[in-house]
Amino acid sequence: MSTLAPATSRTSAAGPTPKQRRRRANRPSPLLVAFVLVPFAVESIWVFWPALQGFYFSLTRWDGLEPPTFIGFGNYTELAGDAVFRGALVNTVIWLALFGGLSVLGGFGMALLLQRERRGVGFYRAALFTPVVFSLVVTALVWRVFYQPDGLADQLLRAVGLEQLIRPWLADPQTALYAVILPALWRQIGYVMVLYLAGLKAIDPALHEAARMDGANARQRLRHVTIPQLRGVNAVVLSVIVIDSLRSFDIVWALTHGGPYHSSELLSTYMYSAAFQSLRLGYGSAIAVVIFILALAVILGYLVRAFREDA
């Protein structure tokens, strides 16, 4: 009898027998250990170790030129009193709500519309997904043309007689943040749509059939069959959205640099400008730690539960 009892997958009806469970204490094959350790080591070298250093830097004052000076939690107390940091935190929450919320709604809606294979659906899906494959520099350029004074946005408004709305979209503190969310959504909705399309595809058609037999209409089927079945997908979408929101940097940096005067500043852009423009690397690292903790706090609870269920 092998000690290499495979962790039986959830899809196999029986599940692990109690006998197999008791074998947990056994050690795995060394080759398997290597399978795990090598990738883990690579990630340790390029991610964990630098991250630990980053945590350490957050406790220092450092201009990147001279060796860092240890100052304890000085950077964190300064953060607490920093108005720009508070503004960035608020903007990040707005970003999370708007960017996150709208890309879920938009992505889910598109997935529902495009889930059935019919003529043209492939093209529509491809169209919505295309922006996902572009880099930030490409996206920023496309949208910069759109927002230019007398650019596409202004021309469109003029064409429909709304020229009184025209303003310097990216340079007006009232609109800058929202003008940046739009391109971010443009890239994200296609991505979320694909996640949901896969989720919808995985739902057993028999469930819908059964509901239909019971006389449920389309809306009831959506509410009582589709949405509950998508729990797994929702989890992944949530993680993706939170990570992407907190990490959203490229597009904001490319379009506004967090300006004008911090009005579109997110934690990620403030971190970058504190570290690399003001050369306050310790302070920047402290902001990065805050971002990390926020991401972890939102996601960890969910992930742990997901793992407990599955593994």
Binding site: M1, L4, R27, S29, P30, V33, A34, L37
Partner: peptide, 15 residues
């Protein structure tokens, strides 16, 4: 049947 030898020495060797 198994190719796994639980002896500690061998394990370390594989490490």
């Amino acid at each position: 049947m198994s190719d796994f030898d639980p002896s500690r020495r061998r394990f370390l060797g594989h490490l």
